[in-house]
């Protein structure tokens, strides 16, 4: 068996006395959608923050394997996790560059590549043609994702003026423009209407199938999770309580118990069952 794309081992994160994530281990694979679910406050976002380097885990090892090279994420600063290990993420509360245009948001995402092409600015300042070419390629990549996320028409609008659903899609497009091997999405469907939600499913499947990108997905909508994920991890109070295919997880008594505390979600689970 080959190395998984991401291996999380014994991840623990404490905030003072609070243990937000407690000894969690799991794998995420290339070309698969791995869903992380659990009630509010279960520690899902904290797991993401540890993977993306926003928090330094208290204990644990996070190994990302890209091109057979292992990257120990817990030792890398956040920008290297994105730039070198190629982990991209979106945020639970959207974080775009609101005053820059949609296109500019996508070009900023290709910063490191363009920075090298511009000879770390020096060549670019003097209009070196190689940079012009690199920039045109960057725009092509941006256009590709704009088309996929249905944002081409608004490419020159400022990002802050997009409607909510558009901003969510733009955040995914921006993450994809970093050409990641692992894409971490924190509640991407929150606040979307059913139509937008369905489009999102299509987009995620496309990313998984066409780009072989591993997707790590935090999601509350059970129907989405059950439909598109290949693998589900359930967290509750910082601990992992279940791990397996959607079918296995939905019949797990511990999962049902965890969700019974929240009537809406338990209904959702049973609805799918």
């Amino acid at each position: 068996m080959t190395q998984p794309l991401l291996r999380v081992e014994h991840l623990t994160m404490r905030f003072g006395g609070l243990i937000a994530v407690n000894d969690v281990s799991f794998d995420a694979h290339e070309g698969q959608i791995t869903a992380v679910i659990g009630p509010n406050g279960a520690g899902k976002t904290t797991v993401f923050n540890c993977i993306a380097g926003f928090y330094k885990p208290t204990v644990g090892r996070l190994t990302l394997t890209r091109n057979a090279t292992p990257y120990l994420l817990e030792r890398m600063p956040g920008n290297d996790i994105a730039g070198k290990a190629r982990v991209a993420r979106t945020f639970q509360n959207i974080r775009l560059f609101p005053k820059m245009t949609v296109l500019e948001n996508l070009i900023v995402a290709q910063h490191n590549k363009l920075m090298r092409a511009s000879g770390f600015t020096l060549l670019g300042l003097f209009g070196w043609p190689g940079y012009g070419k690199a920039e045109a390629e960057a725009v092509d990549l941006a256009r590709y994702w704009l088309d996929r996320t249905n944002l081409t028409d608004v490419a020159d609008e400022v990002a802050g003026s997009l409607p909510y659903g558009g901003q969510r899609r733009l955040e995914i497009a921006r993450a994809m423009c970093t050409e990641p091997v692992l894409l971490c999405l924190d509640e991407p469907a929150a606040g979307l209407n059913p139509r937008e939600s369905a489009d999102l499913n299509t987009l995620l499947r496309f990313i998984r199938d066409e780009h072989k990108t591993g997707v790590l997905l935090i999601e509350h909508d059970m129907s989405v999770v059950m439909q598109i994920s290949d693998h589900v991890i359930v967290l509750d109070y910082g601990r992992k309580i279940a791990d397996g295919t959607p079918d296995v997880v939905r019949n797990d008594p511990k999962v049902i118990a965890a969700y019974l505390g929240e009537p809406e979600d338990s209904a959702a689970v049973q609805g799918v069952v």
Partner: peptide
């Protein structure tokens, strides 16, 4: 000129949201 180069765009992006910049690999 520098506004239209990657470093200039990164400056403006940093002004808007530093955390998002880090998540895109910008130091």
């Amino acid at each position: 000129r520098i506004r239209k180069l990657p470093v200039g765009r990164a400056w403006e992006a940093l002004r808007e949201d530093e955390i998002a910049c880090t998540a895109l690999g910008i130091n």
